[in-house]
Amino acid sequence: MQIGDLLRRGLAAGAAAGCLAAVWLLLITERFINQALAIEDARNAREAAAVAAKGNHVHHHDELVSHPQQVLFAVLALVVVGALVGLVFAVVYAAARGRLPGYHDRTKALALAGLAFFGVTFFPFVAIPGNPPAVGDPSTIEDRTLIYLGAMVLGVVLVLAAFALDKALQGTVDGGVRTALVLAFVVLAGVGLQLLIPNTPDTVQSRDFSLALNASPELIWNFRMASLGQFVVLWGALGAIFGALVGRKVPAVEARETVAA
């Protein structure tokens, strides 16, 4: 088994996982995006009406891209992003294989997928959860992106620190106790880091609009759960498919290597 074998499998598993996440998007996430877009349209119509009421000329600018095009492209984007994430996954898997829990590639790949979900999805999600359209303040996108990327980096650092702690405790503390200590560290350090990460600069729903022109808390919550579920599908499928593809190849190869040795 060499890096090239892993990369090809990562690419394939990632693209397949992206397809499954796209199915989730079409069936579930899009429902809430559509509800939010209706709110945005109502808001724009009201602003246009206010401009017209003042006797000013209303500028209708054509949409650059229609919504069906955006949906179609979202499916494509998920497959491409899935494949790229699969490549990253394969490289990290190669380097981490010896340290991941489990005795089989299937278990190890699922474990890495779980760690990735925690570090680069769940941890940043808690710090700055995603929102449907009609919620974010356009003027704070840069700050929010920095918080998001920063939280992602901290999530990865937290996972790496947990592995470093596990290694440091080897020889001093045994199996179950060591796992408990490492988990306690992750929880405490995780909460501590979350408290250090600045809050989103947006006060959600800060604009002076009636509730009908704002996304309701229910819509925001439903969207967030849909988005998180989509990531569970993406990472879960990536880990399961990658592990199955690698696990199928390994026994034969390693048997041959043993014979050769």
Partner: peptide
């Protein structure tokens, strides 16, 4: 939006 990346 679906991937939780900050946007408007």
């Amino acid at each position: 939006h679906a991937l939780g990346v900050p946007c408007h």
